[in-house]
Design a protein around this nucleic acid. Structure first.
Lengths: 205, 205
DNA sequence: CTATAATCGGAACCCGAGTTCCGGTTTCGC
DNA sequence: GCGAAACCGGAACTCGGGTTCCGATTATAG
């Protein structure tokens, strides 16, 4: 029987998964779900043991599916990037460019602020080895939204997708549950409002 | 001989330091300097051993002056907060309120972006036990600058000192040497420009 | 100069968290 | 059903990094 290299399987492409036992597939999902929750709540310092317990499994099982803590993190990151990229695509389909742009930012901000680990990963990790493709795709999709909004004359022309990513990273770190804003009972909305005002063409504000 | 409780001595108030041997005083400063450099470069995960080596001292010496890694971090944080607060005070003395406000932000941003540990501390730490006073003073001083700038009609009226702090925390995490911006070769200037535009009264942009 | 106490250095200790290992269990093709 | 191949659980291992300890060293009072 051909087995799947866990390293590859842990990445994103669900393409070549060959013949995995039913319980294994089920448990992989459990691990992923538990890990997402734990990382979101405790940040990257969430412990594998806790993830395993939350998933109702042993640590060994976690490690069989994801050879390393980093691999697990990357798998989740890839997931997130993918979702964000989808949202960017959806924004392209909305009628009003500026509205779409804001909506995209709003959804992203909400996601970022609710997940302590993700923002840290995005703003701190040296590279997203396992999620590099997804990250690139997200940036691309974001650029499309930026371009469209600029074409409508509502967004400053010098803004790039990288700027948006950078700003959203900042939002994640300072508005997350353990960030400065979180500690002072402020929401990410304030941050986003200021940011959006800064991005918009001066004559439209 | 009355000895100084290291815990107290490690804080900020240099008031009651009674009779410390000259070499001890000298070494304390060395530790502080080395720690500042190491933390700035490597973030909070800089190691005590490395700090000691950089200071040309043994680890024991470091621990005699600062009973814990956290205490050391707090001492440095207090320092930083104090400097920032001074800058805020200086801003109050500059003639043009808006210029002064921007200058203050610019200096702060530069400091934040150059120090990996500081921004993490500010945006992530549960509480600044040892630096709580300094943090409060900084917030107060910042509020004064904000008030003055708002009075001049150049800064949006709903902005608070907390907003400014939150935004600068975000800048620190995403524009530091290891943040998103740093990895993409972007500077903190872009971030700050957008931010300032978002803070300014719409009719002045 | 000498005594004494503060200070220094760094090897050793400790502990937490990621990772490995292997006997027992479950699934699936025949 | 049956047996082999996967898979599971969780105790045990490893290792890095903060912290402690104590004999050697050095500064200061008298």
């Amino acid at each position: 029987m051909r087995t799947v290299d866990p390293k590859t399987g842990a990445g994103a492409a669900p393409a070549v998964v060959v013949k995995q036992r039913a319980d294994a597939r089920r448990n992989r999902k459990r691990v992923l779900d538990a890990a997402r929750a734990q990382f979101a709540e405790h940040g990257v310092e969430a412990q594998i043991d806790d993830i395993a317990r939350a998933a109702g499994l042993g640590v060994g099982t976690v490690y069989r599916h994801f050879p390393t803590k980093d691999a697990l993190l990357e798998a989740l990151a890839a997931d997130r990037f993918q979702r964000l990229a989808e949202w960017a695509d959806e924004a392209l389909a909305e009628p009003d460019p500026w509205e779409a742009f804001c909506h995209f930012l709003r959804r992203s901000a909400e996601l970022q602020a609710s997940d302590r680990a993700l923002s840290k990963l995005m703003s701190e990790r040296e590279s997203f080895q396992g999620a590099a493709n997804e990250a690139a795709r997200l940036l691309e999709a974001t650029q499309a939204v930026v371009d469209r909004t600029q074409a409508s004359g509502e967004l400053r022309p010098e803004i790039t997708a990288e700027d948006v990513a950078m700003l959203m990273c900042g939002l994640g770190s300072s508005c997350g549950p353990h960030g400065f804003a979180g500690k002072h009972g402020m929401g990410w909305e304030r941050y986003l409002d200021i940011l959006i005002a800064g991005l918009r063409m001066p004559d439209r504000n």
